[in-house]
């Protein structure tokens, strides 16, 4: 189980990385943490001519406040999601999700930008960018742009990223005093991909939900916002009746894929249970 032979280039700047990609005729892959890419290369699911190492590009590092956003550099490692105080304070949903991402040694290498770029539908962080209404900062041959998470995840492992583009940072609106968040997932074994997972961010006014974004993962081809369930909760104090209504709305929001291992009905059931638990926690001031 070895990768096909490739050339390796260590880029020092974003421009160098983009240039190398273009000059390899786009038959190239950017590598950062490589925790998903290396197995994919070993299994020969991918076999690029050129691997462009972006982990030494300073511009892709660092977490800092920028206006009303927290700018999280693409190379921020999963373990830094746990250790970085700015994340805990201004993007606590990411901090809460981080311990569920794979295992400690994977978290030591894997990067936030890489996880979002791969857009694995069973991954925690891509789904959380949806719940957070984050914006993805992208650099490419035709310049840089920002794409809302809502417009980023298109289909199975398919995103708004064009060939030769790379994620440079993710911008997350700063967590505010009138907001609450909750996260949980159900997996057969800690560190395994979740059977179903969910994270949410709500803004309250007078103890009632003014706005809420709920994002599920491991429920289909992409991380998925459940807009029907969200709508039922606006204006509510998260009483049992409204929570039940939101749980019922999931049937219209989610269409889990057919799978022998986890039948759609089972996934939907787990999603309802998780939603109930998390909304209960939000109601208690989670």
């Amino acid at each position: 189980m070895k990768a096909r032979a490739f050339s390796y280039f260590r880029a020092a700047t974003i421009d160098q990385a983009l240039d190398a990609h273009a000059r390899a005729g786009d038959d190239a892959r950017f590598i950062a943490g490589g925790q998903s890419l290396v197995p994919a290369l070993s299994l020969r699911l991918q076999a690029p001519r050129l691997l462009i190492d972006i982990t030494h590009i300073d511009e892709l590092r660092g977490v800092r406040r920028e206006g009303g956003y927290l700018r999280i550099g693409a190379l921020t490692r999963h373990c830094e999601m746990l250790s970085e105080p700015l994340i805990a304070e201004f993007a606590p949903l990411l901090h809460a999700a981080a311990p569920f991402v794979a295992h400690p040694a994977i978290r030591n290498r894997g990067t936030f930008g890489g996880s979002v770029a791969l857009a694995d539908p069973a991954s925690e962080f891509p789904a959380m960018t949806l719940a957070l209404d984050a914006e993805i900062e992208i650099a490419g041959p035709s310049g840089s742009r920002r794409v809302k998470a809502d417009d980023f995840f298109l289909d199975l492992f398919e995103t708004a990223l064009q060939p030769g583009e790379l994620i440079t940072a993710v911008h997350v609106p700063l967590f505010k005093a009138d907001q609450r968040f909750a996260f949980d997932e159900l997996a057969r074994r800690r560190g395994d991909y979740a059977l179903v997972g969910c994270g949410m961010l709500a803004t309250f006014k007078n103890d009632r939900v003014d706005d809420i974004r709920i994002s599920f993962f491991s429920v289909g081809n992409t991380p998925t916002r459940v807009k029907g369930a969200e709508a039922t909760l606006i204006g509510s104090s998260l009483d049992a009746e409204r929570i039940a209504a939101a749980q019922a709305a999931l049937e219209g929001d989610l269409a889990p894929p057919d799978s022998d291992e986890v039948p759609p009905a089972m996934r939907l059931h787990i999603a309802r249970v998780l939603l109930g638990r998390l909304l209960g926690r939000l109601g208690e001031g989670a």
């Binding site: 390796y8 290396v38 190492d53 040694a105």
Partner: peptide, 11 residues
């Protein structure tokens, strides 16, 4: 701690 199988020596 990292997996030495999940990175290339050049990295």
């Amino acid at each position: 701690a990292v997996h030495s199988c999940l990175m290339y020596a050049v990295q």
